[in-house]
Computed example of a mutant assay.
Amino acid sequence: MKNELKHKTYSKMRHKWISLIAALALCLSACTEGYIDDIEFVEPGADNEAPEVTVNYPIEGTQIRVTEDVTSIEIDLEVEDDIEIETVIVELDGEEIARFEDFRDYRRFLGTVDYDNLTNGEHQLEVIARDLSGKETSTLVAFEKIEPYQPVYAGEEFYLPFDGDYTELVRIQTPTVSGSPGFADGVSGRAYSGAADAYLAYEAENLQSGEFSAVFWYKLNGTPDRAGLLVMGPPDESNPTAMNNRTAGFRLFRENAGGMQRFKLNVGNGSGENWFDGGAAADIDPGADTWNHIAFTIGTDQCTVYINGEVVSQGSFPGIDWTGCDILSVASGAPRFTGWGHLSTSSELDELRIFSRALSQAEIQDIMMEESN
């Protein structure tokens, strides 16, 4: 009986040793077959490479636009070294704002620095990384915080200069960009350059006032021969793929008129629509290749359309209804005014301003003269 018990105990221990040896063999096999990273032996003093520094944000030339004179910024950086990182120092305009000396991964560091006192003007960011052998790398990034835009004219609620981006400057809005629009030389700086199926869509609820005006410059490309320019309209649930609900908001567009391009305004009053079509007076020659100033005003009792400061259409009006008009489309009728084919324009557009009041003709002419000088 004792011999049998001793035999069973020996057998169990033997199985345990066999299992342990098998596990060790499996581990060694995994190491040699690449299941874990190889450990590379490094001779003492064989640190040959200086650290690599990458600044993910801000990048060279970044322009920061906010409505405040002082703002915060999150600096995003990465450092790698072949042996071991010793220190990472972050300086802004020559002043140290952060230092890192403890690293969980001694060869790679991913870090952020929150800085909450960024003022207007140009800035220089420097990230300095040093490894244990004393090798050092310094990376410089120049960027700028743009001074907040101050409206130039009374009642100016929206300003879009198109100077290299599509940021609206009064409230610092960035649009939803459809298609692939571009930029061209404008009346002032750069201008929007249209493309097929391209347009910009901005939030528009803050533009819904009892009076409304819009002014901008437009260099006409007659192809396609009809297009939307500015649209703030409601959804059309009956025609979701070809919207054309004209009971609210407005639609400014152009279309062929005997080889010329005629500019028209349609405004919804809640129970119906009102048209402002100046006929031949509102025509522009598509072959002229010149900048024209376009403007329209929506008052409580009258609407007016201007080309180059002159009235081309005017009429009485009961007042605008803004129900459902939460999107401003720039350079196309899409998505809310597509039922008649007034889609994107291939023309150029510059210096778009929107006002919460009905401008007078003299004010429109003053803006036109000021921007053209």
Rank of each mutant, 00 (worst) to 15 (best):
T247G: 08
T247F: 06
T247Y: 07
A248Y: 07
A248L: 12
A248T: 06
A248C: 10
A248N: 10
G249F: 01
G249Y: 01
G249T: 06
G249Q: 04
F250H: 02
F250C: 02
F250L: 06
F250I: 01
R251D: 13
R251W: 11
R251A: 11
R251L: 12
L252P: 01
L252G: 01
L252F: 15
L252C: 06
F253S: 13
F253C: 10
R254I: 01
R254Q: 09
R254F: 08
R254H: 10
E255N: 14
E255S: 05
E255R: 12
E255H: 14
E255W: 09
N256Q: 13
N256E: 15
N256V: 07
N256C: 14
A257L: 12
A257G: 12
A257K: 10
A257S: 07
A257D: 14
A257T: 04
A257P: 09
G258C: 13
G258I: 11
G259E: 07
G259A: 13
G259Q: 10
G259D: 09
M260W: 09
M260E: 10
M260I: 11
M260F: 09
Q261R: 13
Q261Y: 04
Q261S: 09
Q261D: 07
Q261K: 03
R262L: 01
R262M: 10
R262H: 08
R262A: 05
F263C: 04
F263N: 04
F263G: 03
K264R: 06
K264S: 06
K264H: 06
K264N: 14
K264E: 09
K264M: 03
K264C: 05
L265W: 03
L265V: 05
L265G: 03
L265F: 03
L265E: 08
L265Q: 02
N266Y: 12
N266A: 07
V267W: 00
V267L: 04
V267T: 02
V267G: 00
V267E: 01
V267K: 00
G268T: 02
G268K: 03
G268C: 05
N269F: 08
N269C: 03
N269S: 07
N269W: 08
G270P: 14
S271E: 12
S271V: 13
S271W: 12
S271N: 10
G272H: 13
E273H: 15
E273A: 15
N274V: 15
N274K: 10
N274Q: 13
N274P: 04
W275Y: 12
W275R: 14
W275T: 11
W275L: 13
F276H: 03
F276E: 01
F276A: 02
F276V: 00
F276M: 06
F276W: 05
F276K: 02
D277K: 08
D277T: 00
D277H: 12
D277E: 13
G278R: 05
G278W: 11
G278V: 05
G278N: 05
G278H: 04
G279Q: 01
G279K: 02
G279S: 04
G279N: 03
G279P: 00
G279M: 08
